[in-house]
Simulated scan of single mutants.
Amino acid sequence: MADAAAKKSPVGFWSSSSDRHSPLEDMQGIAAGSMLAALGVTMLSSAHLLIGGTAGLGFLIRYSTGLSFGLVFFALNLPFYWIAYKRLGLAFTIKTFAAVAFTSVLTEFLPGLIAFDHIHPVVAALFGGLLIGTGMLALFRHRASLGGFGILALYLQDRFGWRAGFVQLGLDGVVLALSFFVASPYVILCSILAAVTLNLTLAINHRTDRYIVR
């Protein structure tokens, strides 16, 4: 009886229930996920690697034009917020916007605070992909994402039961195919390794039937 009452009780800013995160927990989860993702992006960028999704498009534009990754990444995600609002709700959209904005800001400042003087591309691919995947996993568990293909992947998982990691892996393949225009075959192979690491992290660890907290 006590457990049932606790589950039905309203969630305050500090307290959560067995099936719902508190606002404070959401804030911490979104901040942590964004920080991990930004560190992963910084690691990949230090090795001049790419990744899939809108982050991959951001890398392609940055390497081709010299524009700021953070600004490009933020702008590329803008069209996806309408889909997020219509399909996944206002709360998801607001939290995703916050995550994308925070990640964009962090990727601008981290290179001046953390320097990788030497990092092997394979190591960057494995650790960078794992960091971004873990960051996205934290965001997914707080009903948020890094926007772009992540929004579409989450929608398809909720609507059809398709694994978000596998959906995003297919979309990432398209982005990585475009990288042949700006990168060497070795860099592309390492970038594919990063994308596989990221998406396997999501596919193995993120299932709605195992983690039901909202």
Rank of each mutant, 00 (worst) to 15 (best):
I51T: 11
I51S: 14
I51R: 00
G52S: 12
G53A: 01
G53E: 12
T54N: 08
T54C: 04
A55I: 06
A55L: 15
G56H: 09
G56C: 04
G56M: 08
L57K: 09
L57E: 07
L57A: 13
L57Y: 01
L57G: 08
G58Q: 06
G58T: 08
G58V: 04
F59Y: 08
F59H: 07
L60M: 14
I61W: 03
I61E: 05
I61S: 13
I61K: 08
R62A: 09
Y63G: 12
Y63M: 09
S64F: 03
S64P: 08
S64I: 08
T65C: 13
G66E: 04
L67M: 15
L67I: 09
S68C: 15
S68Y: 02
F69R: 04
F69Y: 05
F69M: 05
F69S: 07
G70M: 10
G70L: 02
L71Y: 14
L71M: 13
V72H: 01
V72C: 08
V72G: 02
V72F: 12
V72T: 14
V72K: 02
V72D: 00
F73E: 03
F73Q: 02
F73A: 01
F73Y: 12
F74P: 06
A75T: 15
L76Q: 08
L76V: 00
N77L: 03
N77D: 07
N77T: 04
N77P: 01
N77S: 06
L78K: 01
L78R: 03
L78Y: 01
L78P: 12
L78E: 06
L78A: 04
P79V: 02
P79A: 10
P79G: 13
P79I: 07
F80P: 13
Y81F: 15
Y81K: 11
Y81M: 10
W82T: 15
W82R: 06
W82C: 02
W82S: 11
W82V: 15
W82A: 13
I83L: 13
I83T: 11
I83N: 11
I83M: 12
A84D: 03
A84C: 11
K86T: 05
R87C: 06
R87D: 15
L88K: 13
L88T: 01
G89N: 11
G89L: 10
G89M: 12
L90Y: 03
L90F: 11
L90W: 15
L90I: 14
L90G: 11
L90M: 10
L90S: 10
L90D: 14
A91K: 13
A91I: 14
F92W: 04
T93I: 03
T93A: 14
T93D: 12
T93Q: 02
I94W: 15
K95F: 09
T96K: 05
T96S: 09
T96P: 04
F97G: 04
F97P: 08
F97L: 00
A98Y: 05
A98F: 12
A98K: 07
A98N: 06
A99M: 06
A99W: 03
A99H: 07
A99L: 01
A99N: 04
V100Q: 02
V100G: 05
V100R: 06
V100M: 03
A101P: 02
A101Y: 07
F102W: 08
T103G: 03
T103C: 09
T103N: 09
T103K: 08
S104H: 03
S104D: 11
S104L: 14
S104N: 00
V105Q: 01
L106N: 14
L106V: 07
L106M: 05
T107W: 00
T107K: 02
T107S: 06
T107G: 15
